[in-house]
Design a protein around this nucleic acid. Structure first.
Lengths: 223, 223
DNA sequence: GGTGCCGGTTGACCTCTAGTCAACCAGTTC
DNA sequence: GAACTGGTTGACTAGAGGTCAACCGGCACC
């Protein structure tokens, strides 16, 4: 899950907005995180050297090591940051688009991810890519990615609970599996190989686990 | 797809057999490939240095460069080798277990992968991990992994064709998406979070795209 | 029976990357 | 004015991938 949503240069309020610093512990630190995120995303964690990041930010090595203990430390922070950013924007966008009704939010969530899947570039789930690049389960980076996955699943579970799912935890796991398959496949295939099937299977899952929706809301219809 | 099936020490003829050199272009080369494969699988392509591989095989650096042009070259060959090995064993096993009936082979294919998903260790799909670790689409390693994915999809498509699927290509793509989701999720979750849903969705897909099977064969029932 | 090649060895070397150490500087804050 | 924060520079280490040169044993071939 969580593909790196390409942020539009001009963010209409209806689209995924460009990211905004959350707490801003230090402008330089934040700049390092966001610069690194962009580079890691397109080229992979290992392929991007510290020097690349430092040159891009315009900072010296010593200055970097005042903010982070190591490159590993930076990577873990990038993961945490991406996780928070992604969920915050999801929640914001869903509320903006369909209000606070959980059932409608769930349906819109699928729509939102389909939009991302239909983008020109798609590099898979940021967190799963991190897991693949740091396979050692005791690696802090690996663990940070797992944590992000847990957080996203919890978010879906909350919506499912609000929507009256028979088993919110199972619903969240199962929708997660569908998205995981869609994201992984979209990583290497065109959108049209993925989206129709995702819609169909999500509709099946909704029908199986959610109470019938009175308003005829059907997520398997194109917008 | 294609998780690194843990090869049993004693291969019963009914289980996934230990691998056997196919053509054996050079024993040393083959030993390099298989040693590298095991290390890459557990620790990732970048984390494993050439020196580690060379020390394990017991060979000098110069000797290595007589067999491969570069580490990249070795990695690409490991991917190709794993692809061939995996498909060969799949076909062999399916024929062994259920004969040549395509419909039965498809059902058994699901069973086979479920067995793999239920193993103690599971590190995701070898090829998808490669894609994640070499995101540059023009990278020969990335392309080798894509090729492997194409080959596997073609294998499924052939079975679907034989089984009388309404649209063999769509069936193969869709079953692929289900497996992709199952593998990615199983990478970070226990089997029981994945397998029941995979069975359910595969059964749905079979019902949608394959002609009704006369013998009451149901893949959504546990063995 | 040399010639040459194939697969292997050794050791020195280059470049890049992560990370360290030491010294220095400017602005804030107490 | 002292101390802290965040920045600078340059020199350095260790480990990675990769190269170069020289050497060695077996074996095939004319």
């Amino acid at each position: 899950m969580s593909p790196r949503t390409p942020r539009p240069a001009q963010a209409n309020s209806d689209q995924l907005p460009t990211r905004v610093p959350v707490a801003d512990p230090s402008p330089t630190r934040q700049k390092l995180i966001e610069t690194a995120e962009a580079l890691f995303d397109t080229e992979g964690f290992h392929a991007v050297g510290l020097d690349r990041i430092l040159r891009t930010v315009g900072i010296s090595k010593q200055a970097f090591y005042r903010h982070f203990e190591s490159k590993e430390d930076l990577v873990a922070d990038v993961i945490h940051w991406h996780d928070r950013w992604w969920r915050d924007n999801c929640r914001k966008l869903l509320a903006q688009r369909v209000g606070l009704d959980a059932r409608r939010q769930l349906a819109e969530f699928v729509t939102l991810l389909v939009e991302v899947l239909e983008g020109d570039v798609f590099r898979g789930c940021f967190f799963m890519n991190a897991v693949a690049q740091f396979p050692n389960t005791s690696d802090p980076i690996h663990q940070a990615a797992l944590e992000a996955k847990d957080n996203i699943e919890a978010m879906i579970r909350d919506m499912a609970l609000g929507a009256g799912a028979d088993d919110p935890a199972a619903f969240a796991r199962e929708l997660g599996i569908l998205f995981e398959g869609a994201f992984a496949t979209r990583h290497i295939r065109p959108p049209e190989h993925v989206v129709p099937f995702l819609r169909r299977m999500a509709a099946t899952l909704f029908a199986q686990r959610l109470p019938p929706s009175g308003n005829g809301l059907a997520i398997d219809q194109p917008a």
